[in-house]
Design a protein around this nucleic acid. Structure first.
Lengths: 223, 223
DNA sequence: CCGCGGACGATTGTTCCACAATTCTGTAGC
DNA sequence: GCTACAGAATTGTGGAACAATCGTCCGCGG
């Protein structure tokens, strides 16, 4: 499985379940039941849960276990604020040296290869590959580590954007333009475009989310 | 101890030992011995070690345990690059709204209260309180989380800066000037000053580190 | 009828023990 | 001096147990 250690693969499985909506907002993860389900010991499961808590995909309350948090509009804004902080820094850096990461290029190619009927999660996957490649190309191990720490939350935001995403071709074009700015070694333009790109995604998300979470949140979780 | 859970306090103790130099670069932490020493079980210790690995204070190699990494000049630069990314973003935000965090003010007061003979670690402590307060005041939970993730590494850098730090009064003045820019709601000036502040610290560090680690690194660790 | 307190069951946090898999060490042999 | 290999040490994971905490249900009184 992803990550050779048992802990990592347990974390991957749970992460996937959250991102796929199998575990919705408010869902609790009892240790005994969950560990039995995954076929790992409680110790291993707990380590995996701690990992996911640090990624923001789960919330922990002492003596009360973990649960899947609901994404509030404030959370979405906060996630995108961090995205801007990291990705604007990254894209400026790689634009200045004109370093076009091959992973980003191939991600855009992948987007363009998707037809109109492409499943939204395929678009999301390529989109995240693109942005990940950009951050990696900035050449800072700790920036990658930092980005990894909110990567899952970004995905958690995006999967809820389902019906409001533009057509794949439109998404691809935006990313193509970002690459163009990098190729042109125009750091300022790259930053401007990336900022616009991220702000637009945030705005779209903020329009899409509230209705969706509202109906799903209250049956399970109260606060 | 700090953090009510056993795991957190174990992590705190080990973190302290690393920052205090009790555990130098290259030092290994055998699980059985270390857990016995701290009076916790191996599982608990392992959880604490995973935490410290995620903070960058320890490095893990599969089936070979964890060890204290040596700080290379590249590491110092990378840490400060992330500091600039986060703290410039934070200070711009709080300068724009003129939000002067009380923790930052009191940290500067604390610096000025330190005499010429103050232990360097006291200066570091106030310095870190100052910067932490700034990041907190930016009002982004995930920025705080992100900063927390490299906070220990920042400290790990700073403790090695010992003899090269300016006098407390000089350090205090620099921070006072940062506060002044915030009070004046001059975001641009605040950013400029913060960048200069961080770049200067980095430069000082890069001049100080190589000699120190070189002598300590080889007796224990080879690569 | 509704709220309050306490017993009981469920869950978490942590420990001790066990054991396969891997790595390290020291020694014998070439 | 170097390699090969056996034995020791260490890591990665599982299982059972238990105190502490939390949640729930029931009976009681207002």
């Amino acid at each position: 499985m992803a990550g050779t250690s048992t802990i990592d693969s347990a974390a991957s499985i749970i992460r996937r379940r959250i991102l796929d909506g199998v575990l919705g907002p408010g869902a609790r993860l009892p240790e005994e039941q969950t560990s039995a389900e995954l076929g790992v010991s409680r110790h291993t499961l707990r380590a995996a849960l701690r990992q996911l808590v640090s990624e923001g995909l789960l919330r922990h309350e002492p003596n009360r276990g973990v649960h899947v948090p609901a994404l509030t509009p404030a959370d979405v804004s906060d996630v995108f604020r961090i995205r801007r902080m990291i990705e604007l820094d990254a894209i400026e850096e790689i634009a200045l040296v004109g370093n076009v990461p091959s992973g980003a290029t191939s991600a855009v190619d992948g987007m363009e290869a998707l037809g109109l009927s492409a499943a939204w999660h395929q678009v999301v996957e390529q989109d995240m590959r693109f942005h990940w490649a950009l951050v990696e190309a900035a050449g800072s191990p700790r920036m990658v580590r930092t980005y990894a720490a909110i990567h899952a939350e970004i995905a958690y935001c995006l999967v809820q954007l389902r019906p409001h995403y533009d057509r794949p071709a439109q998404v691809a074009k935006e990313h193509r333009d970002l690459l163009a700015a990098i190729v042109a070694r125009d750091g300022e333009l790259a930053v401007v475009r990336m900022r616009a790109h991220l702000l637009e995604a945030e705005t779209t998300l903020l329009g899409a989310i509230p209705a969706a979470t509202h109906s799903e949140r209250f049956p399970i979780w109260k606060e």
